[in-house]
Amino acid sequence: MMNNMENVIYGRNIEKKFKKFKLHIDELKVPKGFATALIGENGAGKSTLLNILTGVRVDYKGDIKYFDEQQALEQEGILDRIGYTGPNNFFLPHWTVSQVREICSILFDSFSKEKFDAFSKRLNIPEGSQGVRALSDGNRMKLTLATAFCRETDLLIMDEPASPLDPLMRDMLCQLIREYLSEGNGEKSVFFSTHNISDMENVTDYAIIMDDGSIVEQGFVEELKEKYILVKGEPEDSERASKYLIGMSKGKYGFEGMCLAKDMDKLAGIRVSFETPTLSQISIAVMKQHTGLFQG
């Protein structure tokens, strides 16, 4: 699947240095026509990467192409095809909801006021005269989402869209993403970062896991679920199993950890049970393995 897929974003040698942090991605592939989740701990470089991809940050090294690896962001019309939502600093705080609507209609050619109104109603965004400053984090995110979804775009890049939303709205967000992808008939793509992996899992097709500025794992969710196996066992076997497990956690009543499917036979003779992991479990195990935290 990986070899034949078309990419909506393809990046090589992306580098960005901060004081103590370095983003370094040898190769970034975001498949076209799918929802891709960018997962990683705080400070892993997710927002930095998304800012680079949307042109909000330009001080980086590397080469990034969009839409079938043909076009750079600076080329005419490319930014128009990309919708972006960010968690902070997206609006001036003293703007009102209706001002955001008016400003968007100038900034983006494909912005539809009618669609915006429909989204506002659907997402239950407070009415026009309400100041952005007075909105709750959740409502501000809903407003941000409305500005992106009511445009004609081919790629949506969203930084932590689910975090400030309540469970009901997270479900609505998944629904919106599904509708967006199905409208596109394989031409539209979504790339979002998230810490709420469980909530977003049912809409995630492809996952990229980052740690300390690099991509440490990526693949289609179904492939990752075949690559990793969740292993559970009794406390007395934890010592023997630990050699083959990543992201292992031990408790009074047993242990569990992630094992590579190809290493399963190494666990022969140990009393363990196998389960198909969720994306959330895979992500946590991979992050634990790379951060070196929570060992033992």
């Binding site: 949307t54 042109g55 909000v56 490319i78 930014l79 128009d80 990309i82 972006y84 600093n89 983006f108």
Partner: peptide, 9 residues
């Protein structure tokens, strides 16, 4: 950071 303005062409 005026992100809404910055992400517009």
């Amino acid at each position: 950071n005026l992100e809404l303005i910055k992400c517009s062409p």
